[in-house]
């Protein structure tokens, strides 16, 4: 009964604390983020017009493999790749030479704080899990059931945190590179009127339609 009471009083506070602050003795988020290099996730995209997409697709896949990367999506008009961050610039430069670059973006997101936060929360929850385990040794049936329910909920939290952390770390380990061989859908030709009348007759649709 005493064990049950302890669990009921201690657990909600402990879980709340785990969300907010790491346990004493564990490094804080700032400590972790200041230690070592920043963890950056790179997201790059390249829209390239090429005469022979098949050849360029093969070339890109070869270059990706040589750079230590791998494809996650290969389709007629698009390639999604994962590439070691230090190889991204070189890969994009090489691929750019294969055609006409219509658009190029490169975004760097600092994930250091997020990763440190997830690591700290994961450690704290693991500690709570170990402590709950200790309660099982001298608990009666009711307390054991209560502890088990709490542990089950904790396992779910742990799995979710671990999954999120793994995803964040994977995004840092390998940059996401998207190469498309088509215009994006939103690039549409708008109506703009020129003061020079004949310029308004220059239009792809009008030309093709009038042929």
């Amino acid at each position: 009964m005493r064990a049950l009471l302890i669990v009921m009083l201690w657990l909600p506070t402990a879980l709340q604390a785990a969300e907010a602050t790491p346990l004493p003795g564990h490094p804080t988020r700032t400590d972790e983020s200041e230690r070592g290099a920043r963890q950056t996730a790179i997201d790059a995209s390249l829209t390239l017009k090429v005469a022979h997409p098949d050849q360029v697709r093969r070339l890109v896949l070869d270059l990706t493999k040589a750079a230590g990367g791998y494809p996650t999506l290969v389709s007629d008009g698009r390639l999604d790749l994962r590439v070691p961050p230090q190889q991204v610039d070189a890969l994009l430069a090489q691929v750019s030479q294969s055609g006409l670059v219509l658009a190029r973006t490169l975004q760097r997101n600092d994930r250091t704080e997020t990763i440190a936060d997830l690591q700290a929360r994961l450690r704290t929850k693991r500690d709570i899990f170990q402590r709950l385990r200790a309660f099982l040794d001298d608990s009666n049936v009711a307390a054991t059931l209560k502890v088990e329910r709490s542990m089950t909920a904790l396992v779910t939290d742990l799995e979710q945190l671990r999954g999120t952390l793994e995803l964040e770390e994977a995004n840092v380990r390998n940059a996401a590179v998207r190469i498309t061989f088509q215009f994006h859908q939103e690039r549409r030709v708008d109506q703009v009127v020129s003061p020079f009348a004949w310029l308004n007759t220059l239009d792809l649709e009008q030309f093709v339609g009038g042929f």
Partner: peptide
């Protein structure tokens, strides 16, 4: 120059 400005404004991408 005028053609270039007009077609750029209309969303064409210069090749």
């Amino acid at each position: 120059d005028a053609t270039q400005r007009h077609l750029t404004a209309r969303g064409y991408t210069k090749k």
